[in-house]
Simulated assay, not measured.
Amino acid sequence: MFRFGVALVASLLGIAITLSLVVRSQGQQPLLLPEESKHLSQLRQLTFEGTNAEAYWSPDGEWLVFQSTRPPYKADQIFVMRADGSWVRVVSTGKGRCTCAYFTPDGEGVIFATTHLAGPEPPQVPKLDIPRYVWGVFPSYEIYLRRLDTMELIRLTDNEGYDAEATICWKTGRIVFTSYRNGDLDLYSMKLDGSDLKRLTKTLGYEGGAFYSPDGKRIVFRAYLPKTSEEVDEYKRLLQLGVISPPTMELFVMDADGRNMKQITKLGGINFCPAWFPDGKRIIFSSNHHDPKNFDLFVINADGTGLKRITYHPAPDLFPHFSPDGKWLVWCSGRNAEQPRQLNVFRAAWRD
């Protein structure tokens, strides 16, 4: 949730995954490196086909929801599977492009963004002469709720601009998401039925990939807030084309109502996909601040102190998310990839 789509990840991480494939072909790197075993053990690969991203736990810790581009689908669709990687099934419509899924508090449904109403073909990012990664904030994205027991599909947003990157506070039932309305990409919250819409951020720039703390009192998110006139002009120009291309992103924390926003990283590079520890005091995230060619997982306190590196693999590590009991960490990685730009879902026991 940042919450990148699979297409964006492929663009952003091409160099890093290529490096990981070279290392793997030489047989020099195990799945779990010795320096990673301080916090991780019992590593298990859960997916083996397609390109997979944004795997998130169910409230009971028994299931995972994730997005994947795999045959016969042309773009990301939403899947669920058991926490051991079994019983994989698609729960989106199979049409358009999907992103950013998350379980409801009762575990009987998932929310996600999809473009399927605009047509069966997935929208494409326009070709632009930009040296950085670019991803589409397609106006056809709307947020839906899929009931897993009845397979009823319920529309939650109805907006001419982008609506996506949604997660839910399991304690309060509120959804936080990124939306293009009121002239910018901001964070909003709403009830689980789509009512009681509230705007949370108003600073010019992109805010996204938000997660509620376990108690529902705070939100962590990533942001690119352009400062110079040149940065502002480029951001607005690209936004009119339906894309964004942040040169940097940092992490922020704020109260659930949008007050007391505080920047907690000033690392440079791209810092994204933050998620809370179950204790609500720390945040795990992915960053390339230490190496522009690769992403690793890091931990930081919610006040911005205590930065600690978790992974060291030459393959990219992204989208970390803790099981509700804090015993397991799931994330997506290019380690053991069978083809260029492939990501798979991995699970490991967490050692604190």
Rank of each mutant, 00 (worst) to 15 (best):
R24P: 08
E62Q: 14
L8P: 09
E54A: 10
S58L: 04
E54H: 13
S25Y: 11
Q26I: 10
I78Q: 04
L32M: 01
D60W: 02
S41C: 05
I15E: 14
G14V: 08
P30K: 08
A16N: 13
Q29M: 13
H39F: 13
L46I: 01
I15W: 10
G61T: 06
S20K: 04
L8K: 11
Q26W: 13
F79W: 10
Q42V: 00
L13F: 11
Q26K: 10
W57L: 00
E36V: 03
E54P: 00
D76C: 12
L32I: 03
L12G: 06
Q45R: 14
H39S: 12
T47R: 08
S68T: 01
A7P: 00
L40H: 03
L43C: 08
G27D: 02
L13T: 12
L64F: 06
P59A: 07
S37M: 10
V65M: 04
A7N: 11
V65F: 05
E36K: 05
E36N: 07
T69Y: 03
S37W: 00
A10Y: 07
R24H: 14
P30G: 09
Q67N: 15
I15A: 15
R70M: 10
Q77A: 02
G27K: 01
W57E: 01
S11C: 05
L13H: 10
E62I: 01
E36F: 03
V6C: 03
G61A: 04
L8M: 13
S20C: 03
F48N: 14
L43H: 07
V22E: 11
I17V: 14
A55E: 05
P71A: 15
A10D: 12
A16P: 08
F48Q: 13
T18A: 15
E35H: 01
A16F: 11
S11P: 05
L43N: 06
Q28R: 14
Q77G: 09
L12F: 02
G27H: 00
Y73P: 00
V23E: 09
E62Y: 03
L64D: 02
A53V: 06
W63D: 06
L19R: 15
L12M: 09
A53D: 03
E35I: 00
L31I: 10
A10F: 02
G27Q: 03
A55Y: 05
P72E: 07
S11H: 09
R24G: 10
F66K: 02
L33I: 07
S11K: 11
E54W: 11
I78K: 09
Q42I: 00
A16T: 11
K38N: 11
D76K: 07
S25I: 08
T47W: 01
E36I: 07
L46Y: 01
P59W: 02
F79D: 00
